[in-house]
Amino acid sequence: MIRRFGEAVQASQRYRRRPGAYALLVRDGALLVTHQQEPIPEYQLPGGGIDPGESPIPALHREVFEETGWRIDITRRLGAFRRFTYMPEYDLWAEKLCTIYLARPVRAHGQPSEPGHSAIWMEPELALKRLGNAGDRHFVARFLGAAR
Rank of each mutant, 00 (worst) to 15 (best):
L128A: 00
H61E: 11
A23H: 02
S113T: 15
P39C: 11
Q37L: 11
L25C: 05
A119Y: 09
W70F: 15
S113L: 10
A30M: 09
I120Y: 03
A8T: 06
P115Y: 12
D73H: 14
P19R: 02
F81P: 00
S113P: 00
A21H: 04
D28W: 04
I120P: 00
P46S: 04
A30F: 11
T99P: 03
G69A: 05
I72C: 05
E67L: 01
G48L: 01
P39M: 08
A30P: 00
P19A: 11
A11V: 09
E66T: 04
R3I: 15
R4A: 13
D51W: 03
W121L: 08
T85I: 07
R14F: 12
Q10L: 15
V64L: 07
L25V: 06
P41A: 10
T75G: 07
T34N: 07
E54D: 13
L78N: 08
I72N: 04
I2T: 12
L31E: 11
Q37I: 12
L131C: 02
P52K: 00
A59H: 01
E42F: 07
S113M: 02
G116T: 06
L45P: 10
W121G: 07
L131R: 00
R3Q: 14
Q36R: 14
R137W: 01
T99Y: 05
V64Q: 05
R4L: 05
V9T: 10
P39Q: 03
I120L: 12
L32Q: 10
I74Y: 03
H138E: 09
P41K: 08
Q111H: 12
D73R: 14
R16W: 10
F5I: 07
E54T: 11
Q13L: 13
L45A: 11
R14K: 13
R107P: 07
H109A: 12
V9I: 15
G20C: 06
G110Q: 11
L102I: 10
A59E: 06
H61T: 00
I100R: 01
